[in-house]
Design a protein around this nucleic acid. Structure first.
Length: 491
RNA sequence: CGGGGUGUAGCGCAGCCCGGUUAGCGCACCUGCUUUGGGAGCAGGGGGUCGUGAGUUCGAAUCUCACCACCCCGACCA
């Protein structure tokens, strides 16, 4: 065995690390808290980007690029925003190095101190709103719908591959609108685009909701979220969409003239998903054998492994494989033929399972003689022999059913890990042993939420958008409550 | 920022307690032959500032001190 993976049961956290490293998604870098996304991981991220980018454009957004460096003073303009991010900002103070006194020593040139320090963006609201002030004068300039794909830096004390790194990649949408209603609609629309993407493409079921004041984005009026459940019973916030009200418009004095010639502050949203989605993808579907990548995101959907004794057999199999590849490509299925002679079939089987390739086709002399191929699906690890005639449509529908099965499996798991309770003792017991979401009444105060967090490490993940109103008593204080909210321990 | 751990070949580790030939092992790599339906076998081969810096000593991977880096676990966050 060349690559051992810790089992989920033995150590879930170690399993995750092993998987990310050994499947070739990513690696640690020489910079503390920063990761290297390797080609295989980046290929999956590119597929995520491709889908989301097309949806952003379909809904009228345009991409642009804003600076990595932001003047420090910009941050102090919005009070809550600065408070939220001040603790984790990387700061550029100088612009030049020079030779030190020792050989090969470089020191920061003290004479090159910046008049105003620059912050490496932890998010771009401030630089974008200082720009929007110049772009927006009239109602004719609205709505302004901009997105950027970028990297940001948040100086994290504790990091984990993909889920929390000091530098990460994401997209951030920033929009400006004439009315409150239009901005709220935008925030909800983008949340829905995220939710669709996560369920249809990532095969991860999500709960859409709104954050409580404690969990809200610094500077937002409302933060909408999509929350998912990982295999260890911890929740993961997969994306957020913020209704910013007029907070940034007022902080940066962005006003427009309406049809009546009256000046108004604009209404804003921002929304983002990050490479954290990669972590969610790994933790939602994968098993002790390796990754399980849904076909819609798999850079390679089908791999063909030849089984042969000599070069004559290999060339016969190669001919068959060429035809198979051509047929699959006609159906827009991505396929790789692995004719690497230095690796044996068994090695390849294990390797492609580790990488989570959805479907594996093996062809050997027996198959050539019988006109068949062996097809193995990664999600269930089932193997079957199918006929070469008309196989392509079978593979196509197999990929579809793998995609569906992954969503279904994850949905069943999520539903099984969503418990309703009215007893705080039971609440604690569930959080401690079973994990998952807990649906419970809450009196609506931050004090209660923080107290519950202190006692159980569980936080309110969201108030579901489709929540039905229901009279009840707060699980902790017994005070009146009009609806249940979702608690969980989270990443 | 606290607690723990690790640093020896590309990767994973042993050696260290109790200092002493040329620093080992597995995987990977190179060459050759045999193999190939679930991580092949044999033979030969290449590859090392033992994290860094001081110190103790005739002699340090090994003992002492300092420093650095990374990982894991907690508090804070997407």
């Amino acid at each position: 065995m060349a690559k051992e993976i810790t089992s989920r049961q033995a150590d879930y956290s170690q399993w995750y690390n092993d998987l990310v490293l050994k499947s070739g998604l990513a690696d640690y870098s020489d910079v503390r808290g920063c990761m290297i996304i390797k080609p295989y991981g980046y290929a999956i991220w590119e597929k995520m980007k491709q889908y989301l980018d097309s949806k952003f454009k379909e809904t009228g957004h345009q991409n642009a690029a804003f600076p990595l460096l932001i003047p420090k003073s910009f941050f102090s303009k919005e009070a809550e925003h600065v408070e939220g991010f001040a603790k984790e900002c990387a700061v550029v103070t100088h612009y030049r190095l020079k030779a030190g006194s020792k050989p090969n020593e470089l020191i920061v040139d003290p004479s090159a101190k910046l008049e105003e320090e620059l912050i490496i963006r932890p998010t771009s609201e401030t630089i974008i709103w200082s720009t929007y002030k110049k772009w927006i004068q009239s109602y004719r300039d609205l709505p302004l719908l901009i997105n950027q794909w970028a990297n940001v830096v948040r100086w994290e004390m504790r990091t984990k591959l993909f889920l929390r790194t000091s530098e990460f990649f994401w997209q951030e949408g920033h929009t400006a609108h004439a009315t409150r209603k239009e901005a709220e609609t935008e925030a909800r629309l983008m949340l829905q685009i995220y939710a669709d993407f996560m369920e249809k493409i990532m095969a991860v079921p999500v709960i859409k909701g709104v954050k409580t004041a404690n969990e809200r984005f610094a500077g937002a009026v409302d933060t909408f979220t999509v929350e998912s459940m990982m295999q260890d019973g911890k929740a993961l916030q997969m994306g957020t969409s913020h209704f910013l009200g007029q907070n940034f418009a007022k902080a940066f004095d962005v006003q427009y003239l309406d049809k009546q010639g009256k000046l108004n502050y604009v209404w804003a949203t921002s929304w983002g998903v990050s490479t954290r989605l990669m972590g969610a993808l790994v933790m939602a579907h994968s098993d002790d054998e390796g990754l399980v990548i849904p076909p819609a995101l798999a850079p390679i959907q089908v791999v063909i492994v030849p089984i042969y004794r000599n070069t004559d057999q290999l060339s016969e199999i190669s001919n068959a494989a060429e035809k198979i590849m051509a047929d699959l490509k006609k159906l827009e299925i991505s396929v790789k033929f692995d004719n690497d002679d230095s690796k044996k079939p068994g090695w390849k089987f294990a390797e492609y399972e580790l990488k989570g390739i959805p479907v594996r086709i093996a062809i050997g002399p027996r198959d050539l003689a019988n006109g068949t191929m062996e097809v193995a699906r990664r999600d269930t690890r089932e193997k079957s022999i199918i006929n070469m005639d008309g196989f392509a449509n079978e593979i196509k529908s197999l990929l579809d059913s793998i995609q569906q099965n992954l969503l279904q499996k994850a949905s069943i798991f999520r539903n099984e890990h969503l418990t309703t309770t009215d007893s705080f003792d039971e609440f604690k017991e569930i959080i401690e042993n079973k994990g998952g979401f807990i649906s419970a009444h809450w009196d609506g105060t931050s004090e209660t939420e923080l107290k519950i967090k202190e006692l159980t490490k569980a936080t309110i993940r969201c108030i579901p958008l489709d929540n039905k109103l229901e009279e009840g008593a707060c699980i902790f204080t017994g005070k009146n409550s009009k609806q249940r909210v979702l608690f969980a321990r989270s990443y």
